[in-house]
Design a binder for these strands. Structure first.
Ligand SMILES: [Mn+2]
Ligand SMILES: [Mn+2]
Ligand SMILES: [Mn+2]
Ligand SMILES: [Mn+2]
Lengths: 216, 216
DNA sequence: TCATAAAATTAGGCATGCCTAATACAATAT
DNA sequence: ATATTGTATTAGGCATGCCTAATTTTATGA
């Protein structure tokens, strides 16, 4: 019988994303991201470890090579789905996450390839994250959070590390999207907001938000 | 929490399709179509009845209005998915069933509408079956099986009641697809094959196969 | 070092949906 | 009417993945 891997895929995908922030991923962070209770995650992580997909130490959870490879496949399907949704079906970037989160588990390798081909092998998802190629290779650009720029510095937005639709809609309304040039006008002290200039307009941006926007 | 309706959807979809052949659907027929054991179906049917989606009498299983409405929604998503796969992604008609069978459970009403819109509101799936509209309305053409045509009669293929990829591939290789005109040259006696003429070529077709091809 | 707080796991359950084996129910044919 | 045959259900299990409550482990800070 055909196994349903969607929960496994969901976990691996979350672990992959979270480890980009901080390496061994804590089960509590994972639970929060997956919107599950901690014991559920504890248990599932144990099963994933048993299948050789993750390594679980006192520090937290790491993906094994096999787990990483599977995670990248899921992420490829997720990001290709997002592109299909925006480029072909006309969705906005804030509307695609949940849809893609379901599609990613339903797409065969053939469909994955056909989407990539039909769209001209896109390099990134609508949020600027790289789409792994069929063999799991992906190019990570060297970036830093917008929040780390100093006054008068500017950067080009590479990607936005955010999934919340409301936040994405807000950012789009300010024109804060990949490939856009942002200039930091001022940085308020004591963790205060940044004053940024985008396409001729000025906005005050909280540090929290600015840290999600990665620039080069 | 978000319920996973995919099994319910699968059952309702199967019941809907099977009842087009013979009205109250037997649990054994349903089990066969779903590739499950009979007791699994017995049990699930009981649950569906409990939810008011089917009515279960001695004769077999029937959809309630609510069940029928839900079934048509799933079928709409299935057929729209098939069209997306063939028209946008370049799949062949024999490659789309399984893929669509997974996609149909992952597609939101918004995506469903977007697909329909992007494709110019197609009326049928690649196999010629009608796509219900958003309100569940669908136009069934009056058709008869090709196997019921007499010698020298001709008809235009409306749809093909078949899901098996090998059979579909075979039919496509003979040019037996919706909108194609077929002429029955001869009908061999005693349930023997039909000799048909399609686009200038002659083929012998088994009765079984011919009964799946519906013409007008 | 010892108390307290935070993080993680264990224990015990539950819902869903599948299975096999056994049993009950129908329809036929003798 | 009764034996046979096929259809359907009941009984009893199992796997998966989630939950709450209780407990254990680890970290922190007085
Ligand atoms: Mn997902
Ligand atoms: Mn994305
Ligand atoms: Mn399906
Ligand atoms: Mn079809």
């Amino acid at each position: 019988m055909e196994a349903d891997n969607s929960r496994t895929e969901e976990y691996l995908e979350s672990i992959y994303k979270l480890q980009e922030e901080q390496h061994p991923v804590s089960t509590s962070r994972l639970a929060e991201h997956l919107k599950l209770q901690a014991p559920s995650v504890s248990e599932m992580v144990k099963k994933l470890a048993g299948k050789g997909l993750v390594f679980h130490s006192e520090k937290g959870v790491c993906l094994t090579d096999e787990g990483k490879s599977l995670a990248k496949k899921v992420i490829r399907r997720h990001r290709l789905s997002e592109r299909l949704l925006t480029d072909v079906l006309g969705f906005k970037w804030d509307e695609v996450h949940d849809e893609a989160c379901r599609l990613e588990h339903a797409i065969s390798p053939e469909m994955e390839d056909r989407i990539a081909e039909s769209l001209g092998n896109p390099k990134t998802c609508p949020h600027g994250h790289p789409i792994p190629d069929r063999d799991g290779k992906l190019i990570k650009e060297k970036v830093k959070p917008l929040s780390e720029l100093k006054a008068r510095e500017k950067g080009i937005i590479v990607n936005v590390f955010e999934e919340d639709p409301k936040m994405l809609k807000y950012l789009a309304s300010l024109g804060l999207m990949p490939d856009v040039c942002v200039k930091v006008e001022e940085v308020a002290p004591f963790g205060g907001p940044l004053i940024v200039c985008v396409a001729g307009s000025r906005y005050a941006l909280g540090r929290e938000v600015a840290s999600k926007i990665k620039v080069k």
